[in-house]
Amino acid sequence: MFQALRFVVSRRFLSLAFLALAALTANPASAQDRRQNAPGEFDFYVLSLSWSPSFCEAAQERGGNNRSAQMQCGGRPYSFVVHGLWPQYDRGFPNYCERPAPRLARNIMQSMLDLMPAPGLIFSEWDKHGTCSGLGQRGYFEAIRKARAGVKIPDEFLDLQQAKTIAPDAIEEAFIKVNPGLSNSAIAVTCDRNRLTEVRVCMSKDLQFRACEEIDRRACRRDQVVMPPMRGG
């Protein structure tokens, strides 16, 4: 009986060890090297540009009435807005590198509303991603502004008045065409069930375009996506 009990306990121990190992290998971010969540220690940035009309449609479908949705989805007709500038590892990414994060100065938040039209988004991006940049508050948001200035939005997406159905590859090609030095390996399009959600552009620490295989692997795999028209006016 003792032998049988020892066998059961051993099997249970091995099963738990196997599950722990599987969890680590399934989530590369949890198995990072010594740099994990060390401010300033990362390989590149992702500039995430959100298609605002898709965000607003999704918020409306969820019945969302929060302040961020109200600010972005009424009044000014937004097209692409900045979601964030995210430090990345070649495998995985850091986040929340200072807990608690230093409170973002309100005047810095207000200075970014032209690119990121929701205070809650700006505060959360600082807490989650800005603290990993190794930059101070002003330096991080200046980097966002510089990164955004380095990406030209194709003219056909600046004043979209009717819904547009388009292949993700065609969106990438439109960006590549108007941004010298940008290649397919440095840009990825994301989507939800049927809508364009974001265009993600990979940049080096000095904000030059660079390849990023892992970001590209997480790109939208649909043949076509819908770009809802711009709102407000």
Rank of each mutant, 00 (worst) to 15 (best):
R12N: 02
D223M: 02
L85C: 06
D206S: 06
L104I: 10
G75F: 09
D114M: 11
P39F: 14
Y45Q: 00
A105Y: 13
I176P: 00
H129W: 12
F55C: 00
Q162E: 13
D114F: 13
G120H: 10
D223V: 01
I108P: 01
F93K: 08
D33A: 10
C220I: 04
A69G: 12
R6L: 15
P100A: 14
E125H: 14
S50N: 10
G232S: 06
C191P: 05
R145D: 04
A163T: 14
N27K: 09
I153V: 06
A149E: 12
I122S: 01
G84S: 13
A59N: 00
P94H: 13
P100S: 14
G75I: 04
A143S: 09
Q162W: 14
D155H: 06
R34K: 11
C132H: 13
G120L: 06
H129K: 10
R106E: 15
V225L: 04
S183P: 07
G84W: 15
L113P: 00
C220R: 03
A149H: 03
K205Y: 04
N37D: 08
E213Y: 09
F18Y: 08
D223K: 09
N37T: 02
E214M: 12
N95A: 14
E172M: 08
T190F: 09
E57V: 05
N65K: 10
M112D: 02
G139S: 10
T25P: 01
Q70N: 03
D206H: 04
G139D: 12
M203P: 00
G75M: 03
R99S: 07
D127R: 15
R11K: 11
R67G: 03
G136S: 07
H129T: 13
P102N: 14
A29N: 02
L135T: 07
K152M: 08
K177H: 05
N194F: 13
P168K: 04
Q60P: 00
L115H: 02
V151S: 02
R35C: 10
A174V: 09
A26D: 08
S52M: 13
D206C: 01
A149D: 10
A118Q: 04
P168S: 03
P94E: 11
P228Q: 08
P168I: 02
A101R: 13
Q137N: 05
I108F: 12
R35L: 11
I144N: 00
G92Q: 03
R67L: 14
A118L: 09
S183H: 10
R76H: 04
E173F: 00
C212V: 09
N194K: 11
R218N: 03
T165M: 02
K152W: 06
T190Q: 12
P102S: 12
A118T: 07
H83C: 05
I171M: 03
T131S: 09
P87C: 13
A22K: 06
N107V: 15
R62G: 01
P53V: 06
R76N: 08
P53G: 01
A17D: 07
T197I: 09
A174N: 04
R200T: 06
R148T: 00
L196I: 08
V225C: 05
V189T: 12
A143Q: 01
G232M: 00
A31S: 08
V82K: 05
Q60F: 05
E214P: 00
G232H: 06
T131K: 06
R210F: 09
L14W: 15
N194E: 13
L19T: 04
I122V: 12
F157Y: 15
P180N: 08
